[in-house]
């Protein structure tokens, strides 16, 4: 797993990258009540807002961590947004991206580096 400074985790699955948010992020967000997912086929540039998460406290965005095409989204979250609090690093992945060059993932943090980052 790789981690971004925006508290996303990235997991390689074949030629796809699976994206979710970390336990730390889900705790900070509080109870998630609404999720808006991108459409499959969306071509996103790094930094694009691709997912909207609304918690009991506030709205926040998930940014595309890298350039790529969204090829699958986790529709389960639309009906059960609380899954993001229950299993953020497992069942509650948000989307899968197809990217051209997997080596861009090398730039992201390792688990140890992320744990240092969140202190």
């Amino acid at each position: 797993m790789k981690y971004t400074e925006e508290h996303e985790w990235l997991r390689v699955e074949g030629d796809l990258v699976v994206v979710g948010i970390t336990e730390h992020a889900s705790t900070q967000l509080g109870d998630v009540v609404f999720i808006e997912l991108p459409e499959v086929g969306t071509v996103a540039a790094k930094g694009d807002e691709v997912v909207v998460i609304e918690s009991v406290k506030a709205a926040s965005d998930i940014l595309a961590p890298v350039d790529g095409e969204i090829v699958e989204v986790n529709d389960v979250l639309v009906d059960n947004p609380a899954l993001v609090n229950e299993d953020p690093t497992g069942e509650a992945w948000f989307f899968k991206m197809k990217i051209d060059d997997m080596s861009v993932l090398d730039d992201f943090m390792s688990e140890d580096e992320y744990n240092d980052y969140i202190g």
């Binding site: 509080g30 109870d31 009540v33 009991v56 406290k57 609090n85």
Partner: peptide, 11 residues
């Protein structure tokens, strides 16, 4: 602002 139970459960 909240305790460990969280806003939803506290409510």
């Amino acid at each position: 602002v909240q305790y460990p139970a969280g806003v939803m459960k506290e409510h």
